[in-house]
Amino acid sequence: MSALWVAIVAVTLASAAIKAAGPVLVGGRELPPQVNAVIALLAPALLAALVVTETFGEDGHLVLDERALGVGVVAVALALRAPVLLAVALAALVTALARLFG
């Protein structure tokens, strides 16, 4: 088997196992309140971390580029109570324009 197929099979199995772990180990049972308190904070923590890495992360560096402008547009649009899809579409548009003229 070539290196590529080894990678494909291994990544598939590992990825499936990672996704299955939480549901199998945690699912269905009543958890202590401390654990629930931690789980409840996973969503805001994960979302915030994803925003930072996908806006400013680039090959192991922090960079300030057109993506930050687009994400800034979303922040302003949401502060003005724009619908989510409109805000996200505006972000893509502004980012594309900034790259075109930047």
Binding site: L50, V71, A75, A92, A96
Partner: peptide
């Protein structure tokens, strides 16, 4: 994908949902 600004859709969307969550 980058020229069309599509790569920014994901962080933009996550930020929008984060705001809702917060």
């Amino acid at each position: 994908v980058e020229r069309l600004g599509l790569d920014v859709i994901f962080p933009a969307f996550f930020l929008a949902l984060l705001v809702v969550e917060l």
